[in-house]
Simulated assay, not measured.
Amino acid sequence: MTKSNTYKARPAVDTDLPVLDAFLQGIIEAERPMDPTLKDDHIIYYDLESYIDQNDTYVVVVETEGEIVGSGYGQIRRNKDYFKYPYYGYIGFMFTKVTHRSQGVAKMIIDYINIWFAERKISEVRLTVYDKNSPAIRAYEKAGFKKHLIEMRMNLDEH
């Protein structure tokens, strides 16, 4: 893809759901090899249809030339009582079509969602990413995120 493409972010609508469902399966397909805890059969991470209608969740798409090429959502979540901010913004469902990667689509989605967070007085924004997903980590760092916490796991059946 050339840099001459004009990308535009906008809120997702119900008619986007078939594309968003395909993106969701693309995310799961990419993450399955990184996570041995995922079930082998068909799974769904998010109820995207309800997310589009929720007040505390903002589903965003990026399109170019009438084609949706990226997605993400921002969600306002309640924090634990011991944290400085009572609520934080969580970003998830980040997906960019392979042919549009390295074009700034992910950053555009994050920036668009961050405006939504700021309008709601949310200062702290978090996301989770698999440690083995180096391309995503680089994209998030380019968008301003910093590594903060490492989650570790152990399977007692394997020991």
Rank of each mutant, 00 (worst) to 15 (best):
L24T: 15
D41S: 14
R120F: 09
T6V: 11
Y51S: 05
A136G: 14
T99F: 09
L156K: 04
G70T: 01
A143N: 09
L20A: 02
M154H: 07
V105G: 00
D21P: 07
I137A: 07
I68E: 05
L48F: 04
V19F: 02
N55P: 06
L20T: 05
I110H: 00
K146M: 10
Y58P: 01
I115N: 10
I115E: 11
S102T: 09
I44R: 08
A106W: 00
L38K: 02
L17W: 03
R126N: 12
K147H: 10
M152R: 03
I68L: 08
T15R: 07
E119N: 13
P11K: 11
S71Q: 04
E151R: 05
S123G: 15
N155I: 09
Y58T: 01
P33E: 07
Y58W: 11
L48A: 02
Y85N: 13
D14T: 10
I27Q: 02
S50N: 15
L149M: 08
D40F: 04
A106C: 05
V98N: 14
S50T: 15
P86V: 11
L20H: 00
E67S: 15
D111H: 09
T96V: 13
R32S: 10
I76D: 04
M152N: 04
Q54I: 05
N133V: 02
I137G: 02
D47I: 02
A136D: 08
L149S: 12
T128W: 09
R77H: 11
A106M: 03
T64N: 06
